[in-house]
Design a protein around this nucleic acid. Sequence first.
DNA 1: GGTACGATTGTCT
DNA 2: GACAATCGTACCT
Length: 216
Amino acid sequence: MTALVVPDRAWFTRDVHVVAYDLLGALLTRRTSQGAVTLRITEVEAYAGPADPGSHAFRGETARNRTMFGEPGRVYVYRHLGLHHCMNVVCSPPGEASAVLLRAGEVVEGVDLARARRAAAGVTRADVDLARGPARLTVALAVDRDDDGTDVTDPEGALVLRVPAEARDDRRVATGPRVGVSGDGGRADLFPWRAWLDGDPTVSAYRAAGPRRRRR
DNA sequence: GGTACGATTGTCT
DNA sequence: GACAATCGTACCT
């Protein structure tokens, strides 16, 4: 059993692919007045800043994505389709805006609380689905836009990440194209930046980005 | 000031 | 497998 440590800012200030890879299997704990929910991260996607057509940072810094352009180790939370929230961790120095999207995880602590949050959202599901998908993940953790900018390197914070102290890699990691990203000009093969723990039941189902139909 | 559209999900067929 | 839900943001006029 390897000891767990809270990574520092330097840990996040590395190549976005390396951070994404190292986030797999890491534990993310969410503390609220209701209690704690801990997630074992099983699926992530890398977004490489303004040079990456699939990234929100592609069109430069705006009020929405300001957090991505800020300090590494903070979470960037955005609202999608007016319904869901998705959560990223910034992993580049200020100005570079690289981030890793947390797509799925396994609830390893606080299952009852996560289950209650899903029920409150009007859906009852198998436990394996509690954080299976980026928006479900934020529901399980009760993360929303208000949590944008939270520092996960603060051991006393509302969101804390923990990773193995020693690199002991017995994980089976698979990689593939990102899900639902159409901003890559149809060249998803150039951006095979999704990574997941191979065979893990909590990994979300892959859906290729469909051809975008123009609306009338 | 208007409009197109999305790093998704749940439900229905 | 298709599609609606639903609203903030970016981009255009």
